[in-house]
Design a protein around this nucleic acid. Structure first.
Length: 783
DNA sequence: ATCCGAATATTTTTT
DNA sequence: ATATTCGGAT
């Protein structure tokens, strides 16, 4: 990779290089996109170990993904050799904490065989909590309770310090207490606990705390802008010596919704007195045009640290902004251009397709498949989320930690063992009454005839199965144990007897789990470590989307979030439309952080090395609805001189059809029988899109309002202000209610399903023979 | 207890 | 549009 050779630390200027390699004490590096920040960290580590003789096991490097950790390790291996590298602590906050918790967890009341509950498990647990509290599921959806509780946990606030100002919070507080209690009873932790427990130990005046605080002499943290409160405190607690090197870029902070706080970067200077600040502002990755485009978008951001990214690279190709008709037209354009890229010799693995939400991936995937183009979808419904895979994992987790009721509940009757809902409920009751886990309650329930005979027999069989597996666990390798589970539980047999294509697929997936277990064992052995069941389970639970990217000649397709930290020769960024990117929910209560969306856009643009294609559609079918979105306001922030505009034929057709007074988008049977809603009114809507392609030249501002920085129809907003204001229905909007019959000049008669109020009210309307469509109220007349 | 079809919610982004 | 949950019938 030429980039590798271009930007090592020896290209840094004197003082920067000096600080990065030799500064003692706190150091913060503001590393602009593509400025080689990972390289900074690896070189500093190498210098610490080799130059300063810091023992590698006293160096902790925190990365954002496991994949980044792996890459960092392999780079270090080349610099330091395998022995030294093996002893370094390199990993994500979560992975590192999981490891520490196995060792120090007893001090926080966690047995070393603890289970990590993923989002699904957390939701399952919260659902049970809600039921136990007798909460109505409609009023208190477990998902929302969980979100509320996790928000508290991300801020390191326990239930006692819950700042409730409404009834929902009151309830959430009670849910929090019980949720945590159940986790403890199950000897399980959620993602937040993993960090919180370690933090609690590290901040405690115990021998373990003492030990933990002295454990790492040097700590390096990558992607510091996305560190949340707990992680920040954790760094502080683990580094009483203040030897912390934080590397980040506030322009790339995209996880505020997850509790990350950009201001932590500023707090660093306060909390780590004497911190040395280094700025890396040269981008070694992207062409001049691409850097200029990205700067156009981020330059409009407020509240950023002063810095000026620049590049010495040639301007290169202009950025293509492509106007398409709909999502299929968009996908078709991508696929065609992609083919040309491949024909020109670009490696498929060096081209990426980005989108804002996973829901956009399907159409693109279909287009890729239809054209026989190699691709891999990153994230979405992940492999380990498949039902059969989760079942097998649940067996393994229950074997490792019999107290985990969530896992028991998942597999107690899978495959069917004639254990019904009633029986399971009874088992749960007994367990609760006696303070036992459900697994522990199996014995008493059977012995004391607390369930009917048939149920007793079934429970007994299940109990025996699990006991057998648990006896085998200490001597079996994880792989052998998994095979035993599949055989003894009858799971494999049940699938085989189904003898359908679907069952075959499931078996195939299970075999894949087995091979991933084998891989794990092999890897651990190679590293001279034990291959433990707990280790494997933690690893798969803590895997991130980005971790799945394999280095193969296939085009990776992913959300922009997953693209963080990656780079590609060519990038296709799809769905650059208002309301999709920046993403705004239909729900007026949900606010949208436009500034964060802007940074996200910046991240997307800066992934591209040489060629960047940005696409938007005039209409889009998403979530079962057709939406007519204006081009993203971010497009208006691209400097005109770096952009090449492209209009697909379909988009042009749509525009011409519109100009002729026919609906560009309605299906054939609809004529142009305009009534009082004439083309001139439509002009305000579709017309804006029709001109979407025109950058530059005098008339653009008039014909293409969506490309000017501010739209005439929307007042200027203060930075950080809520994007979508929920306004009380003051009667100024047309009186259209749910259920009202309305007509649209092109779609005909319809019934209003939903009305979103606001400055520009939008109704969801079901027209005869159409999928529900979202239409601005101004386009509708009552019928 | 299980199966099937209908109703119902859910859709940002993720360790 | 899709996934999951629920209710009623078998």
């Amino acid at each position: 990779m030429p980039a590798e050779a271009r930007a090592p630390t020896d290209l840094l200027n004197g003082p920067q290089r000096e600080a990065v390699l030799h500064h003692e004490g706190p150091l913060i590096v503001f590393a602009g996109a593509g400025s080689g920040k990972t390289r900074v960290i690896t070189h500093r580590i190498a210098e610490l170990v080799q130059g300063y003789r810091v023992p590698p096991y006293e160096v902790l490097a925190v990365t954002f993904t496991n994949k980044a950790a792996g890459e960092m390790k392999s780079r270090l291996e080349r610099m330091l050799g395998p022995e030294l590298t093996r002893d370094l602590w390199v990993g994500t906050f979560h992975a590192v904490c999981a490891r520490l918790l196995r060792r120090y967890g007893e001090a926080a009341g966690i047995a070393p065989n603890f289970t990590i509950y993923d989002a699904t498990d957390q939701r399952a647990l919260m659902t049970r909590v809600g039921r136990e509290l007798g909460l109505e599921e409609r009023r208190f959806p477990p998902q929302q309770l969980l979100a509320r509780v996790l928000r508290e946990k991300q801020e390191a606030r326990g239930p006692e310090s819950f700042e409730g100002d409404n009834y929902f919070d009151e309830v959430a507080k009670r849910a929090y207490v019980l949720y945590d209690k159940q986790l403890r009873a199950a000897n399980a932790v959620d993602f937040e606990d993993l960090l919180l427990k370690v933090l609690a130990i590290a901040e405690s005046e115990t021998p373990e705390g003492e030990h933990l605080r002295g454990r790492f002499r040097q700590i390096l943290v990558d992607e510091f802008q996305d560190v949340n409160t707990v992680q920040y405190r954790l760094v502080g607690a683990l580094a009483p010596h203040r030897n912390v090197c934080a590397v980040g870029d506030d322009d790339q902070a995209i996880y505020r919704w997850r509790g990350a706080d950009v201001r932590k970067i500023r707090g660093f200077v306060r909390d780590f007195p004497g911190a040395r600040l280094v700025k890396l502002e040269q981008n070694y990755r992207s062409s001049g045009h691409i850097v200029a485009a990205a700067l156009g978008v981020i330059g409009r951001s407020s509240e950023r640290q002063p810095k000026e990214l620049w590049t010495a690279e040639p301007a290169g190709e202009p950025v293509s902004v492509v106007a398409t008709r709909d999502e299929r037209d968009e996908a078709a354009w991508v696929v065609t251009r992609l083919r040309a890229e491949l024909d020109a010799g670009t490696d498929a693995g060096h081209i990426a397709i980005f989108y804002r939400v996973h829901a956009q991936s399907r159409v693109l995937e279909e287009a890729m498949r239809a054209e026989n183009l190699p691709y891999q979808i990153i994230g979405g419904h992940r492999f380990f989320d498949r039902a059969e895979v989760k079942d097998l994992i649940a067996y393994l987790r229950l074997v490792a930690n019999p107290k985990s009721d969530v896992d028991l509940l998942r597999i107690i009757n899978v495959p069917s063992r004639k254990i019904g809902q009633k029986t399971v409920e009874r088992l749960g009751e007994v367990a609760r009454e006696r303070g036992l886990s459900m697994y522990e309650a199996l014995g008493p329930v059977c012995r004391e005839d607390l369930v009917p005979t048939a149920a007793k027999k079934a429970l007994g069989a299940f109990s025996e199965l699990m006991d057998g597996l648990m006896r085998a666990a200490p001597t079996d390798t994880p792989h052998a144990l998994a095979e035993r589970v599949l055989a003894d539980s009858g799971y494999e047999a049940a699938l085989k007897s189904e003898d359908t294509a679907e069952a075959d697929g499931r078996l195939e997936n299970l075999r894949e789990v087995l091979s991933s277990l084998a891989d794990y064992e092999e890897e651990q052995n190679a590293a001279g470590e034990d291959a433990t069941l707990e280790g494997y389970l933690a690893r798969i639970t803590l895997q991130s989307d980005a971790d799945q990217i394999v280095d193969a000649p296939r085009v990776p397709m992913m959300t922009v979030h997953a693209a963080k930290g990656l780079e590609f020769d060519a990038v296709f960024l799809c769905g650059m439309e208002d309301r999709l990117f920046p993403l705004r929910s239909d729900d007026p209560n949900r606010r949208c952080d436009v500034e964060e969306e802007r940074r996200l856009c910046y991240v997307a643009l800066t992934r591209a090395r040489h060629r960047l294609y940005v696409l938007h559609t005039a209409m889009r079918l998403i979530y079962g609805q057709t939406r007519y979105n204006a081009p993203s306001p971010f497009l208006g922030d691209l400097p005109r001189k770096v952009v090449r505009e492209v209009l697909t034929d379909a988009h042009k057709d749509a525009v011409t059809a519109f100009a002729a007074g026919r609906s560009p988008y309605a299906t054939a049977q609809h004529g142009g029988d305009d009534d009082e809603v004439g083309p001139s009114r439509l002009g305000g809507g579709f017309g804006a899109r029709a001109g979407a392609g025109s950058f530059g030249r005098g008339s653009a501002a008039r014909r293409s309002p969506s490309f000017s920085p501010r739209r005439v129809s929307e007042p200027p907003r203060a930075p950080g202000e809520r994007y979508l204001e929920a306004e009380p229905d003051d009667g100024s909007s047309p009186t259209v209610r749910v259920g009202a019959r309305v007509s649209h000049p092109h779609f005909g008669l319809g019934v209003v399903q939903k009305v979103d109020t606001g400055p520009d009210p939008i109704a969801t309307v079901k027209f005869v023979g159409q999928t529900p469509k979202r239409i601005k109220l101004s386009f509708l007349s009552s019928a």
